[in-house]
């Protein structure tokens, strides 16, 4: 499934964990200003595929990734590609909120600091301020920026992690089941946030909740045992899936 002028263009992507063939010949594009949801039963490889996009699989010793993943026409596995630069352009939000053991301010300022995005303290304040605002957290934390990030509630921590990711000004944000550790109210807030962020960033979200995929995404990809079964407009996938496997999954016959 191809898209006009995609951010990510992935062709024949394979991932092996040792002997295990975890991702098999996946072709997929990620468009600009769209939310792409990846669904599928546990162990289907959707998270593994997500982690290919910012080369987080590099940190897993037994993992081997082949195929071509083009970010704006540049192969991310190219030798010239600096993985640190790549991860600055492709942010990631994890399943469990993982704020650093630092203050709220320092959590957001961390990325800009290590990449030298702010020339002085004033600019850094500005970046932290905007990022927290965009993540919808500013009003709740503006009076306690110096308190530890871990003092926030789970939903707030997750929005802090999103603010932290935005602060580096990435092109794409990857989200690995960002709401699975949160209650429904915090989940609704994050979903609203994803909808707002879509205007500026391409977003790939892995989710276990089909309702969530239906609510937040424009396109949906269904993975099954390492195969990409089907990808298309979310509406179409949920109302009129082409593959039998997809239909079985979304109608709750397994998974």
């Amino acid at each position: 499934m191809t898209t006009e002028n995609p951010v990510f263009a992935c062709r024949d992507v394979n991932v092996h964990y040792g002997d295990k063939h975890a991702i098999k010949h996946v072709d997929i594009d990620v468009g600009r200003s769209e939310v792409l949801a990846m669904i599928g039963p546990s162990g289907c490889g959707k998270s593994t595929f997500l982690r290919c996009l910012n080369r987080m699989n590099d940190t897993i010793e037994s993992a081997r990734v082949t195929g071509s993943i083009m970010l704006d026409g540049q192969d991310i596995h190219d030798r010239k590609q600096d993985v640190v630069q790549l991860r600055a352009r492709v942010g990631m939000v994890f399943q469990k909120p993982n704020p650093f053991p630092k203050s709220i301010y320092e959590n957001v300022a961390y990325g800009p600091r290590i990449h030298g995005l702010a020339a002085d303290r004033g600019e850094l304040d500005e970046i932290v301020n905007t990022s927290l605002r965009r993540a919808g957290l500013w009003e709740e934390v503006k009076d306690r920026l110096n308190q530890p990030g871990t003092s926030l509630s789970g939903g707030q921590q997750q929005r802090l992690c999103i603010a932290r990711t935005i602060a580096v000004n990435p092109d794409v944000i990857l989200m690995d089941e960002p709401c699975s550790a949160l209650d429904p109210i915090a989940t609704a807030r994050i979903e609203d946030l994803i909808d707002e962020l879509r205007e500026s960033y391409a977003i790939c979200i892995v989710t276990h909740s089909m309702q969530q995929a239906a609510r937040v995404s424009q396109r949906t990809a269904y993975f099954h045992l390492g195969d990409l079964i089907e990808v298309g407009e979310t509406k179409k996938i949920f109302t009129n899936p082409q593959a039998k496997l997809t239909e079985d999954y979304i109608t709750g016959r397994f998974g």
Binding site: T59, V84, M92, F94, N98, Y110, R164, T165
Partner: peptide
Amino acid sequence: VPQSLRDGAYALGATRSE
């Protein structure tokens, strides 16, 4: 120290020593 903290830093583009 949970791996998730390391992942968080790596995902922001931090090097190993950072």
